[in-house]
Design a protein around this nucleic acid. Structure first.
Lengths: 193, 193
DNA sequence: CATTTATTTCAAAAATTCTTGAAATTAGTG
DNA sequence: CACTAATTTCAAGAATTTTTGAAATAAATG
């Protein structure tokens, strides 16, 4: 591995975290390297930087492209492929969240819908059915929220995040002024029961 | 594997998703089974349900305990260990989020802090330093938001989630009434620049 | 259209992770 | 304190994932 010290620390850390994040060391490192690089890099430069095989880099880049996490670029008078990550970090966050939702959440939501559909008539396994319904509703609430805030432009999103739980204050203020129609008062706790 | 049909579908699905979520098939399946079970189960019952080895179940339960995802119970006149998942799904979500943050986010935040601290004087690797600072600030904003809303009681949290992007409306309304002190107007986009 | 350059594919090797059975440990019981 | 029941540990085997080098493919150039 042949990298400036700061970059190296970061790349190594990403490589180690990879296994916790569910990606291979090489893929994590490629991403980390591209992330820190001002100019787009080609495969050869990545090989030199990380000291892994050319084919490994090729496959890693393919995977990162499948995740929409890197973009292909071309340089004038150079027919090699160059890769970058978006300059805008929020774009990266959005892509990551979208892709993880697609791979890690949506299949379960679909499965729950199917299973609950089929078992609607059936009456064995009563408790399991209740649990699955609760889980289904909870995931729908969370993904619904996600889809919703994901529509916000970045400035608004930052505003919202910076506010954090203080939105509560706004609620309270608002409650004194208006009543939102169609909101049922919940007893006191419990999931999407 | 010896389970009622609904439960089996769910357990098998969880097992398959496990690899995407970064946990082993057995651990996922144990969790799924406990999640759907009204009564706490002991190791033997899990072995019977899933058809895996006793030692595998023992290790799986140990891992789930390390994640705080299952709780140990005892039955009168029975010295075996029984396990459950919390009844309250929101408790589960909170635990999951806390633990993942701890394992998957906090170490990176720490690393970034350290690296940026050290390199404050140093002036090589200018762009990498900028990128890392941006990433650091973004993660802080996100985890700060998380810590903040995590303090809300569940009813308030559900309220907030159900509202989704419609909080925007509240902003707009509020903007007409008050000015929050200390908020800088951002130019138009960009991360935690 | 042969040659050079860049990239991808793929089967095998290497590394890692998961699962198991046997043995060890822990903790109750008579 | 010997005996039994419950659980854990751990080394070895199985399975999966990652990485590699060699060969194949694709794309540009003269």
């Amino acid at each position: 591995m042949n990298l400036p010290p700061l970059t190296q620390t970061f790349v190594l850390h990403f490589g180690e975290m990879g296994s916790r994040w569910g990606i291979s060391r090489t893929v994590s490192q490629i991403y980390a390297l591209l992330f820190l690089s001002e100019e787009p890099l080609n495969a050869e430069q990545i090989v030199d930087g990380l000291g892994v095989s050319r084919s490994n880099v090729s496959m890693g880049l393919k995977e990162l492209q499948a995740w929409n996490l890197v973009q292909l670029r071309h340089m004038p008078d150079d027919r090699r492929d160059y890769f970058t990550t978006p300059e805008d970090l929020w774009q990266i966050v959005r892509t990551l969240a979208d892709e993880r939702k697609k791979r890690e959440v949506d299949p379960t939501l679909t499965m729950l819908r199917d299973v609950l559909m089929q078992s609607a008539s059936n009456d064995g396994d009563r408790y399991a059915q209740t649990r699955m319904t609760e889980l289904h509703d909870l995931i729908e609430l969370l993904t619904g929220w996600y889809d919703d805030v994901n529509k916000l432009d970045t400035d608004r999103l930052i505003q919202l995040l910076a506010l954090g739980a203080k939105v509560q204050k706004v609620f309270e203020m608002k409650d004194k002024l208006t009543v939102i129609p169609g909101r049922k008062k919940k007893p006191s706790s419990g999931a999407a029961t």
